[in-house]
Simulated assay, not measured.
Amino acid sequence: MPISSVEKDLDALTMTIVAEFPVPVRRLWDAYADPRQIEKFWGPPGWPATFARHDMAPGGRSSYYMTGPGGERAGAYWEFLAVEPERSFEVLDGFAGPDGTPDPAMPTTRMTCTFEETGAGARVTTTTSFDSLDDLQKLLEMGMQEGMTAAMGQMDAVVADLASFAAGRAAELQILSDAQVRVSRVIRGPLRSVWDAHHDPALLRRWMLGPDGWTMPVCEVATKVGDSYRFEWEQEGGGGRFGFTGELLESLPPHRAVTTERMVGVEGPGTVNELTLTPVEGGTLLTVVITYPDPQTRDQVLATGMVDGQEMSYARLEAEVLTPA
Rank of each mutant, 00 (worst) to 15 (best):
D178P: 05
E281W: 07
Y292L: 08
M263S: 13
P107F: 04
V266S: 10
T284I: 07
P24H: 12
D308R: 13
P44M: 12
R110W: 01
E234K: 00
G121V: 01
P2H: 04
M216L: 14
E117F: 02
T278M: 10
F231C: 03
L92F: 02
E72I: 05
L252C: 11
C219T: 10
E281C: 02
H54W: 13
T215N: 03
T67L: 01
F21D: 00
D134M: 13
M208P: 04
P107D: 02
F231P: 06
R206K: 15
P295C: 05
R241C: 11
P58E: 06
V307T: 08
G240V: 01
T14C: 08
R36Q: 15
A105D: 14
R192A: 14
E320W: 07
D161T: 10
S63C: 13
S177V: 02
G305F: 08
S129N: 05
P44D: 10
P253H: 11
Q145F: 02
M142K: 12
A76H: 05
W29K: 03
H199P: 00
G240E: 11
K224V: 13
T126H: 06
M263C: 07
V266Q: 15
G309K: 01
E261H: 14
T287P: 03
E141D: 15
R316L: 08
E281Q: 15
T126W: 00
D135K: 04
G168M: 04
W195L: 11
A57G: 06
I38C: 06
P253G: 09
G100R: 00
E247K: 13
R61N: 08
R36W: 01
V6A: 14
T245A: 04
F95M: 12
W42N: 09
A49Q: 03
